[in-house]
Design a protein around this nucleic acid. Sequence first.
DNA 1: GCTTGACCTCAAGTCGACTTGAAGTAGCAC
DNA 2: GTGCTACTTCAAGTCGACTTGAGGTCAAGC
Lengths: 143, 143
Amino acid sequence: MTQLDIAEVARRAGVPASTLRYYEEKGLIAATGRRGLRRQYDPGVLERLALIAMGRTAGFSLDEIAHMFAPDGRPRIDREMLSTKAEELDRRIRELGVLRDSLRHAAACPAPSHMECPTFRRLLAAAAAGAVAVPRKRAPGPP
Amino acid sequence: MTQLDIAEVARRAGVPASTLRYYEEKGLIAATGRRGLRRQYDPGVLERLALIAMGRTAGFSLDEIAHMFAPDGRPRIDREMLSTKAEELDRRIRELGVLRDSLRHAAACPAPSHMECPTFRRLLAAAAAGAVAVPRKRAPGPP
DNA sequence: GCTTGACCTCAAGTCGACTTGAAGTAGCAC
DNA sequence: GTGCTACTTCAAGTCGACTTGAGGTCAAGC
């Protein structure tokens, strides 16, 4: 039997066991059985967790990700949705690129105050015009 | 008097009035006075809101942004912090770039199931290895 | 056979950035 | 002076993805 203990899965996937239980509750993963109380998993769960991590990074919610699995557990990913998400990502990437360049400029800018730098002011105008979207904070990483 | 009514500021900045009140509570902006009960703002608040929006997009929290203003209200932005954030953004951008390309590939991939596509599996392995970070959801945009 | 410690369940708490709701008020048009 | 309406305050609620805590259980090692 090649079953993995929850602790082993947690270790290998780099997530806390509480997260695995939470994912199970959400229907994202499933234990194949128990040894005593303890969940046992098929090694395939690691691939699935990777898929989940990827989806999260791409900006999908857990609920959306849950819909990407067919009832039999195989991925059922709508190609059109992927394209859409790819375009979204692309927009976001360009946005962040502009912002990064601006930050770099501001960091190097010799103007005594950032408000006196034309480049900075131009960026600000762009931001005011709604050229930039508002993302949220990152999840807390491992401590 | 060139004072702006809160509704006007909300309209021009593209944020709800409740957000302006919230920002005031957090010390991010300040009304210059009241007309009756209603807050009046100096037009400069728009620039400040743009700065806040920019900071949010760059991934700063409101508290962090609050520290970027000197007591006199002028921006006081640590250049080193800007560089640091620029590098962070850069990393994130590259990460998202890889992900975008992978999504595009997966969308175009002829394999019957994504799991049978070598490229997809390779990406998955990278994700599993922790090559990707987990971002959070976006703020709700304008409806 | 008894302890130990890692797991279990379930409810509740956390975090950040707002939003919502109830109850009140003031400027403006009439 | 009356009403309308858009504002006001303050407390509480929301959302997603988890985490935490209390109290319970069980396989394994001694």
